[in-house]
Amino acid sequence: MGHWLERNIVEPGKLPLLLALTAFVLTFVITRAITRLIRAGKGPFGNVKAGGLHIHHVVPGVVLVVVGGFGAVASSRNGLGAALAAIVFGIGAGLVLDEFALILHLGDVYWTEEGRKSVEVVVITAALVGLLLAGFSPFGVNDLSAGELQDRGTVIANVVANFAFSLVALSKGKARIAIFGVIVPLVGLVGAARLARPGSAWARRFYGNRPRARARAGLRAYHHDRRWSRLTRSLQDWIGGKPDRPEPVRLPGPGPGPGPGPGPGPGPDAGRR
């Protein structure tokens, strides 16, 4: 493990990326734990306020991202400054993306259905950064043997092929499969081979004059969403907390009438002016 870490992380200069990813994931986990305690009214935590204004943690997150980003640019590649800047940047990114939905909707949707987008973005970001971190790079590693160079070239070719399949899956309206297809082999191929979702760019381009294909695509999308939506929601609730239930719509009651009986009807001259 130590040899692999030295060979593939430290030597190619990926140590700051590892520190940033670790800080990012830990910050998200700790932040979600604290916000769930605040929501449940447990622990010594509470919302940060200044003069009655609720300061969301995206605000210090933006500051940390700016400080960490400029610090990384100003630091050497593998120095102590780069490592500290990477940690600061990872913490800031975790705070910002934890409230990604608030930025997207410009509203306090943290514990609503729209707030699930924050969890999705955090998971996808961590997966993509993990791919960059674990990927074999033929650059920056000294004294590669012919076998090592061939192995790394094979891995890179597979990643490029998976990326091409993922682009097709993305055009078919399957964003999650497209993203994870870059990371997990054959996932993008499966997404690219299956029917496109209705309304996607692929469906508009190739199903326009094929009503049977459009009908099959709509039916498959319906069954897919029905089969997997509950599992997806349960996983999101486990990671980020269950959103609040929307308040029921209250219809206005009948106004006060003139009396228990019907009022007088219109006279014979009603409507004449």
Rank of each mutant, 00 (worst) to 15 (best):
L53M: 14
S75Q: 04
K49S: 15
A72W: 08
A134L: 07
N47Q: 13
L132F: 05
A40K: 09
A82G: 10
E120N: 11
A86Q: 00
R116S: 13
A40E: 08
V129I: 15
A83Y: 11
L131W: 03
K117V: 09
E120W: 15
V96G: 03
P138L: 05
L95Q: 11
V59T: 15
T125Y: 11
A74C: 03
V65N: 02
A33G: 07
V96Q: 02
H105K: 04
V48S: 09
A101N: 05
S118F: 08
V67Q: 07
T31W: 12
A74G: 07
L133V: 01
T31M: 12
P138A: 06
S137D: 11
V62T: 11
I38A: 10
A93T: 12
A85G: 07
K49G: 10
L102T: 11
F28Y: 14
F45Y: 14
F70D: 04
G68K: 02
L133H: 03
V48N: 06
S118C: 07
T35S: 09
A134P: 00
V121E: 04
G115R: 07
V129W: 06
I34V: 15
G94I: 01
V96F: 02
L53I: 15
A127M: 12
K42C: 08
F89L: 09
G107M: 00
A101K: 06
S137N: 08
F136H: 13
R77H: 14
T35A: 03
H56Q: 07
R32P: 03
V63Q: 02
G79D: 14
V58P: 01
G43T: 08
E114R: 14
G130Q: 05
L26A: 15
E114H: 07
N47W: 00
V96M: 04
T112E: 14
I55L: 15
V65W: 05
R116F: 14
G94Q: 01
A33F: 13
G81Q: 02
V62A: 01
V67A: 13
V121K: 05
F89V: 06
G41Q: 03
A86H: 01
T27N: 06
R77G: 09
G69M: 03
L102A: 01
G115E: 10
L131A: 11
V122C: 11
H56N: 12
L97R: 00
L64D: 02
V63S: 01
L106S: 14
A127D: 09
L37K: 13
G61W: 05
S75C: 09
L132E: 04
L37D: 12
G68W: 04
H54V: 13
E114L: 11
F70V: 13
I55F: 10
T27K: 00
R39K: 15
P44C: 01
W111H: 10
E114F: 06
A33E: 06
K42L: 13
N78Q: 13
V119G: 10
L64I: 09
L95H: 09
A83T: 00
V29P: 00
L128K: 02
F136K: 06
G81P: 04
V25N: 13
G69L: 03
E120D: 14
R116V: 08
F70P: 04
V109Q: 05
R77S: 15
G130H: 01
L104W: 11
G71W: 01
V62I: 15
R116P: 09
L95S: 07
I124Q: 14
